[in-house]
């Protein structure tokens, strides 16, 4: 019994090290001077520790602009998703109206549309509005995915009707009931949906690639991708890796704080819970 436990841990440690080395190596290169990396980039310890690469990200190039773009687009997407999808989810879960089951089925059917396949018509649509290279073009299509509605409906169905009924007997309007009584109780579900939306949006690649074609409007994800085909950048490996580190640090921090919520969001949204 003890021996199998030890063996399990040994296997897990090896796998964990393999899993984490690529990330660690990126950090090591980001902390190594470019000149040293030209000679040897496979060391697992920074050869001549430096912060120059990181300073370079803040002083030159568009990386900080892309960072800002990502913050704006991801922020708008997350806030609007939470607001609109919780409202719609509440209506579907708790309000009575004609045609509800049809409307809900219609809304959820969109889950079966592969988001990656539909970028051509979306592109044409924003072209005809002359709205490419704007923040709006980047976040509006992202809040149209019905996943959030599904998550919120699942959640709202689990809270008893008596809460909203009591509030309405006391004379509260539907809006007050929702915003002052229901929303505060749905914080756990909202956090799960919020963090899930945040990660997916921050990492979105294809739509920003198609819609934001001006360099200043790249997101961090498309911007960082645009640097990788560039051979001039390969001689400045350290600077490139520093940009990679800056692109993933916000997500890794959020992940460490909200890991439980993110996992919950994934389980609910995939239909496994």
């Amino acid at each position: 019994m003890k021996r199998t436990k030890l063996l399990t841990h040994a296997i897990l440690i090896v796998l964990a090290v393999i899993c984490i080395i690529p990330l660690y190596w990126m950090l090591v290169m980001a902390l190594t001077p470019n000149a040293a990396l030209k000679l040897n980039s496979t060391a697992l310890w920074p050869q001549g520790l430096t912060l120059v690469n990181f300073a370079g990200v803040f002083n030159a190039g568009l990386t900080m602009r892309w960072f800002l773009n990502s913050v704006i687009v991801t922020g708008m997407t997350t806030v609007l998703t939470l607001l609109f999808h919780s409202m719609a989810g509440y209506a579907f879960a708790k309000m009575r109206f004609r045609g509800k089951s049809f409307l809900y089925a219609f809304s959820i059917a969109g889950l079966m549309v592969p988001k990656e396949a539909m970028f051509i018509p979306l592109f044409l649509m924003f072209s005809s509005l002359q709205a490419h290279n704007t923040y709006m073009a980047l976040y509006l299509p992202r809040i149209a995915t019905p996943l959030g509605v599904f998550i919120m409906v699942q959640f709202f169905r689990s809270i008893p009707d008596s809460i909203s009924e009591a509030a309405e007997i006391d004379g509260a309007s539907a809006y007050r009931t929702f915003f002052q009584i229901i929303l505060p109780t749905s914080l756990p579900a909202m956090t799960s949906l919020g963090i899930f939306t945040f990660v997916l949006t921050w990492n979105d690649y294809l739509w920003p690639l198609v819609s934001a074609t001006r360099k200043e409007m790249f997101t961090l994800t498309t911007g960082l991708a645009s640097l990788q085909g560039n051979f001039a950048q390969a001689t400045e490996l350290g600077s490139l890796m520093a940009r990679g580190v800056i692109a993933c640090v916000p997500l890794l921090i959020l992940f460490l704080i909200f890991q439980k919520n993110l996992i919950r969001g994934i389980s609910i949204s995939s239909g496994s819970k």
Binding site: Y205, T221, L224, A225, G244, C248, L251, L252
Partner: peptide
């Protein structure tokens, strides 16, 4: 939680 471009960079 990493983006595709961080993954491909590494």
């Amino acid at each position: 939680v990493l983006s595709v471009s961080v993954t491909t960079l590494i």
